[in-house]
């Protein structure tokens, strides 16, 4: 289970809402658009914040897989993706990048709820589920080692390439890799909100304290830490023997960032 220092989901920024709004086409059958222009997280947040209710029907490009999300205002009622239902189905839908959607407003929901959570809560639950799955797959494909450094020679890509990929994830301003002693090993992107040099030292102190707490509480090793400030959100995750810190302007895309960065952070861990 993830240890979380502080999680609070805030509303999407005006810019996000504008982009999502622009990507939608309204006609007599409701709203429709392409998943390449907006993602499901943004779409759902936009509609729920607008106090809409109804169903979003989705079709994935390629295999034409179908999905449905029922919601009423801020509550996510139900989700289905092919044969998967509930949070599992919703988590699957979050991974769709290409395809089309259609929102049909005010369609009455008459089935039994299989989620029944607030939209933000459901997004985080789905992202956590995806993380656990990725962890299980990772554990199955790696021989357990006591020392992380046993994997040193497996580095496939240069860490700077992986950092550049991380910057392409929507909402990521900057990524900083910090040693356990606070040494800023590498950084990419820029953030006018956070001084990356000072972040290194501060983060090392914070992580040490958090890890000591985890040890005292006997709740296994640190997996994630989210710190939300008024002008920036910092998501931290161990990568090998170092810590990666992802800086984003606000928490509206945290679920998406967490999901999209998962594999890249695992790959980054092979460099440190």
């Amino acid at each position: 289970m993830s240890q979380t220092a502080h999680i609070r989901i805030v509303t999407p920024s005006d810019n996000d809402l504008k982009k999502t709004e622009n990507s939608l086409k309204e006609n007599d059958n409701g709203l429709q658009g392409s998943l390449s222009l907006t993602n499901i997280t943004n779409l759902l947040q936009f509609l729920s914040m607008s106090s809409k209710k109804g169903v979003i029907e989705l079709s994935r490009q390629g295999d034409n897989k179908k999905g449905r999300i029922w919601f009423a205002g801020e509550e996510l009622l139900s989700a289905v993706s092919g044969t998967l239902a509930g949070i599992e189905g919703f988590a699957d839908l979050l991974g769709w990048e290409q395809g089309s959607f259609q929102f049909m407003p005010d369609v009455p929901f008459e089935d039994k709820k299989n989620i029944g959570l607030k939209v933000q809560h459901a997004i985080l639950e789905a992202a956590t589920l995806l993380d656990h799955r990725a962890n299980e797959q990772g554990a199955a494909s790696h021989t357990p080692t006591e020392e992380r450094s046993h994997l040193m020679d497996l580095t496939a890509r240069d860490s700077s390439e992986v950092l550049n990929n991380l910057l392409e994830v929507p909402g990521v301003d900057a990524v900083v890799v910090v040693g356990r002693d606070g040494f800023v090993i590498e950084s990419a992107g820029s953030s006018n909100r956070v001084n990356t040099e000072e972040l290194g030292a501060s983060l090392a102190h914070a992580i040490n304290g958090i890890e000591e707490m985890g040890s005292e509480l006997n709740v296994n090793v640190l997996q994630d830490m989210f710190i939300e400030y008024g002008r920036a959100v910092i998501m931290c995750r161990p990568v090998g023997d170092a810590i990666a810190a992802i800086i984003t302007p606000d928490a509206s895309k945290l679920g998406l960032i967490r999901h999209k960065t998962k594999k890249l952070l695992v790959e980054l861990g092979e460099s440190f």
Partner: peptide
């Protein structure tokens, strides 16, 4: 780690450990 902090403090090299087995 302390030694590389010393290297940095004394101007020998702003350097640190990336991996250690």
């Amino acid at each position: 780690r302390g030694a590389y902090a010393a290297f940095t403090a004394w101007g020998w090299a702003k350097s640190g450990i990336v991996q250690l087995k």
